[in-house]
Design a protein around this nucleic acid. Structure first.
Lengths: 341, 341
DNA sequence: ATGAAAGCGCTAACAG
DNA sequence: CTGTTAGCGCTTTCAT
């Protein structure tokens, strides 16, 4: 036997050769096309089975316009995006679609607009549509069906799924206020995301409501990433007149603040109350576990994929800007101002 | 909205046409090949920029043998696999590789051997190598570089990354024994995984060590999936002589047991002590939070990808069967036998 | 019922 | 320096 075992993958070519038929016959057998005798079909099938052949997703994608694969494009695999992924997986089950999640290895800052890049690279060839998680640009030229989760400011053209960021932030900050805190600081999120802006606005509204003036020096810019948040937390917590409470625009940042506080010997919640946003699973794992404004992240992923499948199949979404509720989750990172154990 | 989703993608063809050059010239410009005048290069670049062109991953993959993309193949996106993904992302950062995670939408039971299928579909075309998370088959014919996390029994040929399942399970069960429990049950995992077998073995060894006989009727077969675990938990907990403690081979199953216990009015930990395995983030979110044997899942993902990159670049792994330590994490789902609050 | 041939978007010889 | 040509693995007319 002189089968060439060089490159590894079994191609249709090789199956055809082995079965003594043409590639087109093999293709027809695989795709169940008519015009093949039962005998050859059976024979080819057995050869396919024996050789362990599977069609190449890539080659097939290039040829067909429809791939039955949905893409989830993320800047990085972190707690938020992986929660979205779990939700996306829920929605994909039984839909006949497959799911591919794609990330360029966190090299986001290198190139703002990663989502346009990815979209161009995958859409129309690998995937039939995509869910964009926290995209950075405004004008996503729709190369195809796209749904954004937690999108950039001003993207009104593409369907989105978001949480009630404004209300959520307001509830989180009110909680701090009700605890008697008046010097409350905020670590804001990535300035270009609607969600971050709304969370800051909610912070300001809650303070205004309570008649507390915003000390602008207590509002520092984070970036939804832990390392940036650490620097910023240092700035905030090393001041002698540091805040007694901090609202962070994301759990990742809140966790960074918590970490920095520990380093500085500031006890949470005795010396500092802390509220996050997102309710990623990790927020419950910290010491103390984080009080946070929960977004239904999984559900957002699920709804985004459902919407996308609809779009792919030509249905216009009933509600192109789907918004879900938030909920304050009380854990142990907050305490009344001045209150001891 | 009447956006036409038909033609969509800008192709190299169109760029070439627009720039008044041939496709190969465009290709050379994009790939920085020598032999292009600075003038044309600049011109072509500007056209590319203006048209928002990006090369199609698929087309490029088909042509090149190397893609610089690493695949993580999972049966489903659930807490365990997404933790692996976070670790994989850690390892990929700065490596020059991109990461694609692929799942067929949880349709695993339909077709045992999903990993062979996925591997054939992606390897050699889309990805340069792959990490298999909890694969189900023995003989993964290496179509290319592959590393398995938590693999099937008997796969000695491919490199693996695992945790110390035996020791971990032993430690978890010992904890229960030290608490004074003697009727301790176990929900085992997917019988075909080495990890599940070792966890059961650890359970048996710990009991033997303590001189406690195993009541086989208390050992029930789960499947690492929550729904299967629920049935099995019912069987275990509805008996009049139900165990006072249960060791579950995974957190997902432990969480299911917890849920069933609640339904049956059995209080954890007062009436039932429960120990899980994995320490997925969700295990801390339950009420009560779960005592569990922690595996360093992220680290496993990280190590698997590092190993894989080495393999792709032709380096033999120093330790082809890399094993990481486990650690008992005490939370609130266990209590001394007969002990009240 | 089967096969030859074209072409999906791209890259890499090889000519010019 | 630039264009022409030949495929990568597959599907799909269109002949046979």
């Amino acid at each position: 036997m002189e089968t060439v075992h060089t490159s590894g993958r079994v191609t249709m070519q090789q199956v055809a050769l082995e079965a003594g038929v043409s590639v087109s016959t093999v293709s027809k057998v695989i795709n169940g096309r008519y015009g093949i005798s039962t005998a050859t079909a059976a024979h080819v099938s057995s050869v396919i089975e024996r050789m362990g052949y599977e069609t190449s997703l890539v080659a097939r994608s290039l040829r067909n316009q429809r791939t039955n694969v949905i893409g989830v494009l993320v800047a990085d695999f972190e707690p938020f995006s992986t929660e979205v992924l779990k939700g996306a997986a829920d929605a994909i089950r039984g839909s006949g679609f497959e799911l591919v999640a794609y990330s360029a290895g966190g090299r986001v800052d290198e190139h703002v607009g990663w989502e346009r890049r990815y979209l161009s690279r995958l859409m129309g060839t690998l995937v039939d549509g995509a869910v964009l998680v926290t995209p950075t640009i405004t004008d996503v030229l729709s190369d195809g069906p796209v749904v954004a989760i937690d999108p950039h400011t001003g993207s009104t053209t593409i369907p989105t799924v978001t949480a009630h960021n404004l209300q959520g932030a307001r509830a989180g900050v009110r909680h701090l206020l009700e605890l008697g805190h008046t010097r409350v600081g905020m670590v804001t999120g990535r300035a270009d995301l609607v969600s971050a802006q709304l969370r800051e606005q909610g912070f300001r509204e809650a303070l205004a409501e309570a008649g507390v003036a915003v000390d602008e020096s207590l509002v520092v810019r984070g970036a939804f990433e832990a390392d940036v948040a650490r620097d910023v937390a240092h700035r905030l917590l090393e001041r002698t007149d540091r805040p007694s409470a901090v609202f962070a625009a994301s759990d990742q940042m809140a966790l960074a603040v918590l970490d920095v506080a520990r380093e500085l010997g500031i006890d949470v919640p005795s010396d500092l109350s802390l509220v996050g946003f997102d309710n990623i699973p990790e927020s419950a794992l910290s010491e103390p576990p984080l009080t946070t404004v929960a977004q239904p992240i999984r559900e957002m992923g699920r709804d985004a994929v459902s919407m996308l499948i609809g779009l792919i199949e030509g249905r216009e979404p009933a509600d192109p800007h789907h918004t879900l509720g938030t909920e304050l989750v009380l854990r142990r990172s907050t305490r009344p101002h001045g209150g001891s154990s």
